[in-house]
């Protein structure tokens, strides 16, 4: 194996940034798993909606396609992220309403939920592929931010978009931590994760909490989507698929249902995947990511940190 050690620095930074994004998406998988004990197979579509909404609102409606600087830049970035977050959040709530709640009412079998979620994901994704929406090709994301070098670490550059990703993800995590541990909604979510029947007896409105969980998970997914679109400069109908699968993998890797596990899994997967490029080359990175998961699960069947729920 010939390793290109010169790539070590850049791939590390790249892996870290991607890992942060995976982690943010993985939160959505993990939170829904926490309350429903089901993997939300439609989270990839929820993710896609965020970036696409920002593309439509910022790029198509307001026509803001030129780079901004200073305060204008900060405002427009906040707008991009919030639009992405809200759109995905709305998408997630709709998803719960259409594909999960009717099944819950009928006490469906586990497999039914997975299939219904896959159906929802298909519908949303391929709807956007139709020419009256996004169409089959890539659409370039509004170029609101020029890429500039911010600082150098391990001999590799981190640009301003990288800084944006790191800052945003950290802010999101602090927010989520406070939400889960210090608010009433957070307490309800934790209660539901621990014991459904007891939570119901204690007066937790299960449906409301489930909707909130989807909304919160979707919100972070949407922010991740907006960051992802900014970073790669385009949106496309199936943009959710690969990050979705990776984040899903990350969530399982860290221990699904476990919020810290999602973070750890995301970072780890981003790093492993990108560092593999150093020795194996670009084309094998997806294969590496998919091999890591079964290996990990064989060693630790419930992920690195286990399925502990809550903070």
């Amino acid at each position: 194996m010939d390793c290109n050690t010169g790539l070590l620095g850049p791939t590390f930074v790249q892996g870290l940034l991607l890992g942060f994004i995976y982690a943010l998406i993985a939160l959505g998988y993990t939170m829904v798993y926490g309350v429903l004990k089901l993997i939300n197979f439609a989270h990839d579509a929820v993710f896609m909606i965020g970036g696409v909404a920002a593309f439509y609102v910022i790029g198509q409606w307001f026509g803001l396609t030129d780079p901004f600087t200073g305060v204008g830049l900060i405002l427009v970035l906040v707008a991009v992220l919030v639009i992405g977050g809200l759109a995905s959040s709305g998408g997630a709530v709709l998803l719960e309403r259409a594909a999960y709640r009717p099944l819950r009412k009928r006490h469906a079998a586990r497999l039914s939920y997975l299939i219904s979620a896959i159906g929802a994901s298909f519908f949303a994704t391929y709807l956007f592929q139709q020419s009256f929406l996004l169409g089959p090709g890539k659409r370039s994301f509004p170029h609101v931010m020029t890429t500039e070098k911010a600082f150098e670490i391990f001999g590799s550059r981190v640009n301003n978009k990288g800084v944006l990703i790191i800052v945003t993800v950290i802010v999101c995590l602090v927010l989520l931590d406070r939400l889960i541990n210090q608010t009433k909604t957070g307490r309800s979510i934790r209660a539901l994760s621990e014991d459904v029947v007891a939570a119901q007896l204690m007066g937790v409105n299960v449906t409301r909490v489930i909707v909130m969980t989807f909304a919160i998970g979707g919100f972070f997914g949407g922010i991740a989507s907006a960051l992802y679109s900014l970073q790669f400069g385009n949106v496309v109908w199936n943009m959710g698929f690969i990050p979705g699968v990776k984040a899903f993998t990350a969530a399982v890797l860290g221990g699904i249902g476990n919020i810290r596990g999602a973070m750890l899994g995301g970072l780890l997967l981003g790093l492993i995947e990108n560092m593999s490029v150093v020795c194996l080359g670009n084309q094998w990175s997806d294969v590496v990511a998919f091999v890591v998961l079964p290996l990990m699960l064989i060693l630790r069947p419930t992920g690195i940190l286990g399925e502990r729920i809550g903070g």
Partner: peptide
């Protein structure tokens, strides 16, 4: 058709 099958999957499951 895949979008349609998506909806169909949900309907069948419900």
């Amino acid at each position: 058709r895949i979008a349609v099958f998506g909806v169909l999957l949900i309907i069948v499951m419900i």
